[in-house]
Simulated scan of single mutants.
Amino acid sequence: MRPIYHYSTVSEALDNLNEMGFSYDFNIHEDEIVNDPHIHQVKHVYRYEGNSDPGDSAIVYGIKSTSGKKGVFVAGFSAKTNSEAARVLDKICIEGSNQC
């Protein structure tokens, strides 16, 4: 089973992922995930829930592509998330061999 990391904040998770080489910003290039989901693997997943407002919930993905590109994608974590890339990553987690 893959280790689960707990962080106090999204920033802390992003800093740690950056230290592990996940420095590419897939939020800026989310079309890469949407257009070619089969070349991406979700290596790390971190969910953050705000203390007072469910709207503060977020999910941080550490992603690696078959080309070796390593980066992060951050999305709101709720039923109302309208990011196509977040839906694709969720599907990768459910259908993929890597259990998210």
Rank of each mutant, 00 (worst) to 15 (best):
D53Y: 12
F73V: 01
G55K: 13
Y61M: 03
G50K: 08
E84D: 14
G71D: 01
V88Y: 06
K70M: 09
S11H: 15
A58P: 05
L17D: 02
V42C: 03
N27H: 05
A85Q: 03
I92A: 06
D31W: 00
Y61I: 01
S52Y: 10
N51L: 15
I94Y: 14
N82T: 08
C93N: 12
I63N: 00
S8L: 15
N16E: 14
L17F: 05
H44R: 11
V74R: 05
Q41C: 00
E49P: 00
T81C: 06
F73D: 00
E84H: 12
V10N: 07
I33T: 07
N18F: 10
P54G: 06
E19K: 15
E30Q: 12
I33C: 07
E30D: 15
F22G: 03
S83C: 05
I92R: 05
V34C: 09
E49L: 08
L17Y: 05
K43Y: 03
I63Y: 01
N16W: 11
K43I: 09
S78P: 02
A75Y: 04
D31I: 01
D90G: 12
P3Q: 11
T66Y: 04
G55I: 07
V60M: 06
E95C: 14
K80C: 02
D56P: 04
M1R: 15
S52P: 04
D15M: 14
I59L: 06
V60P: 03
N98H: 12
E84A: 13
S8C: 13
K64N: 00
L89S: 04
A85D: 03
Q41I: 02
S57E: 08
V72A: 04
H38L: 12
Y7V: 10
D36Q: 09
D25C: 13
S83W: 02
N35S: 11
C100Q: 09
S65N: 10
E32V: 03
E49G: 06
D36S: 09
C93T: 09
E95P: 10
N35W: 01
V74I: 09
D25T: 12
G55N: 13
A75F: 03
E32C: 02
D53T: 10
K70R: 08
A85L: 05
M1D: 14
K70G: 01
V60R: 02
K64E: 07
A13V: 11
L14W: 00
H38N: 14
Q41H: 07
E84S: 13
Y24F: 15
R47Q: 13
E95I: 13
D25I: 14
V42K: 04
V88A: 07
L17S: 04
D31E: 06
K64P: 00
S67P: 00
F77H: 12
V74K: 07
I4H: 15
G71I: 01
Q99P: 09
E49C: 05
E12L: 14
K70N: 01
G96T: 08
N98W: 10
E95R: 14
N16P: 08
E30H: 12
P3G: 10
D25N: 15
T81M: 01
D90E: 11
K80D: 07
G50T: 09
Y7Q: 07
E49F: 12
N16R: 15
V34W: 07
A13H: 08
Y46P: 05
G71E: 01
V45I: 12
G62V: 01
D31R: 06
T81A: 02
V74P: 04
Y48F: 13
S11T: 15
